[in-house]
Structure formats: C-alpha cells, structure tokens
C-alpha cells in the first residue's frame, strides 16, 4: 500500500512537473504580451515530430535539433503573426492563436498524414525499476529531474543575467519596462525563445511516454496547461508554473485512485475545480486580491 502510494506520488509529481513546464511556457509569453498562446500545442507537436524522425541519428543530434525546431517555430509565430497584433486584446489574441493552432494541425496532417508516426525515443527510460519494494518508472524520475534542472536554469537566468532581469521586468509591467528603456522586440523574442525551449522539454517527455506522434499530439497537454496557468495566475510566472503543476498533480492522482467507473470523469472533476478556483480567485491562486489581472 505504501509502495503504491509512493509510486503514485512520484507519477503525480512527474505529471505535475510536465504540466508545470507547459504552463510556464505559456505564462512566460503571456506575462509580456498578454497572449495565451494556444498554438503552443503545435510547437510541442513539431518538436515531437522532430524527435521521432531524427532519433535514429542519435540522441545528441535529435534532442538539440528538436529544441531548435521548437525555438524556431516559436519565434516564427511571433514574427509572422503575433507581432502584427500588438494592440489586440487578450481574448482576440487567444482566438488568433486558436486559429493558428487549427491551421498548423491541418498542415501537419497534410505533411505527415493523420496516422501517428512512431519511434522508440529514449526507450530506455520507459522501464520500471524496483527499489525497496517500490516500483518506479524511470521516466517519472527523469521528468522530475529535467524539470528541476530547467527551472533552476531559468531561475538563474532570470535573476543573474541582465537579459533575464529585463524579461522579468517586462513580464511584471511591460509598459514601464519600455519606458525605462528595455527594448520591447528583444524581450518579446526572448520570451518566445525560452517558451520554445520549455515546449521542447515537454515534447521530449511526452514523446518518450507515448512513442507515437500525430497532428494533434500537443493539444491535450496545452489545454490543461492553459487551464492550469489561468487558475494559478497567468499574470505571474510563478503562478503559471504552480497552477500547471497543481492540475497535473491532481489529475494524475485522480486517475490512480478513483474507482474505475469514476476515473472516466477525472477531467470533469478537474474542470469543476477550475471553475471553482476561478470563482473565488479570478486572478489566480497565487495572485493576491481579485481582479488585478490586466486582461
């Protein structure tokens, strides 16, 4: 029983970490330009396709390449679409990203067909190890490690470098940041690039998990990430991260512990929870007071 408990906790931590990263990748961009980018899903998908197609060349090629693809796509979206919509409100931006997401999915369908593509990406991680009577998925441990390292790196970047500081300032108060002399285009591009790196990490974890990628690969996690970011407080970088983590953690635990006939409804419980949170803390769990969200 305790073994099972620990096992489910590790799995939930890993699910939370993945979703936390995904939510963070959305929150980073939102903080700066008020865009909740639904098309983050297609960045994840592109990066995952890249992993699948290039895995046989070796991980040391496939992984950097998949990151490159994610960053490039992220920047491309910014320059081709979102940079032209600076004065639009968040709702319009969300719809635009929705449209972009739909569009790219169809492009993937045309390019790679509707069927999933498979490859044994990092199949070594798909094993289960037994440790003191507790069976633990190697991938869960790897996910938690990857997320931890990325967050540490991001934290150091944001707090120790000038560019990071500028990004933090822009995310907190974009208008003032510009007035102080922080170049808008550069921090926005930076936020998209970082968001791309996080998306690549999410893509890696998910691809190892499933080994199969289709045109709508990134959609499910992006929806949950968006939801998580909003309930955590998408206005704050830490809010998105925490909200994403929470949703992933809770969903995973519900999936494990709810009886079969109820676990079908696990997403429904999470969504009800979401509505509840939004009702009492409309600006997010981590944001003090009501209605401070600048949306």
């Amino acid at each position: 029983m305790t073994g099972q408990l620990i096992q489910s906790l590790v799995d939930a931590l890993s699910a939370g970490a993945t979703l936390g990263l995904a939510a963070l990748s959305i929150g980073l961009v939102f903080g700066v330009i008020r865009l909740a980018n639904f098309a983050q899903a297609e960045i994840i998908t592109a990066s995952a396709y890249c992993l699948i197609f290039t895995w046989q060349l070796g991980w040391f090629i496939a992984v950097p390449l998949s990151m490159l693809v994610a960053v490039a796509m992220s920047l491309l979206m910014e320059f081709a679409v979102f940079s032209r919509m600076r004065s639009a409100n968040p709702a319009t931006l969300l719809i635009a990203s929705f449209g972009l997401s739909f569009l790219l999915q169809r492009v993937y369908e045309l390019m790679f067909s509707n069927n999933v593509r498979t490859a044994p990406v990092a199949s070594g991680l798909a094993q289960t190890v037994e440790f003191a009577g507790v069976r633990i998925q190697l991938l869960s441990v790897a996910t938690i490690t990857i997320a931890g390292l990325l967050l540490l790196g991001l934290h150091l970047f944001l707090s120790r470098t000038s560019m990071g500081l500028q990004l933090k300032a822009a995310a907190a108060d974009f208008r003032t940041a510009r007035l102080v002399g922080i170049p808008a285009g550069r921090v926005i591009a930076l936020s998209f690039a970082l968001s791309g790196i996080l998306a690549a990490a999410v893509a890696f974890v998910l691809t190892v998990q499933s080994g199969a990628v289709g045109p709508t690969f990134g959609v499910q996690i992006t929806i949950l990430a968006l939801v998580g970011a909003v309930i955590g407080g998408i206005d704050k970088i830490s809010g998105s991260l925490a909200g994403g983590f929470l949703v992933g953690f809770v969903t995973s635990l519900l999936a494990t512990w709810l009886p079969q006939e109820m676990s079908n409804f696990k997403d429904a419980y999470v969504f009800v929870l979401v509505i509840g949170v939004l009702l009492f803390r409309p600006s997010g769990l981590l944001i003090k007071g009501r209605g401070v969200a600048r949306t």
Partner: peptide, 11 residues
C-alpha cells in the same frame, strides 16, 4: 518618472 511611480514591485 511615470505617474504613480511604477517601480518593479517584486524586484
């Protein structure tokens, strides 16, 4: 120096 100061409160 903007109206309402607008220092970066969290920094």
């Amino acid at each position: 120096v903007p109206e309402g100061r607008h220092v970066f409160a969290e920094l």
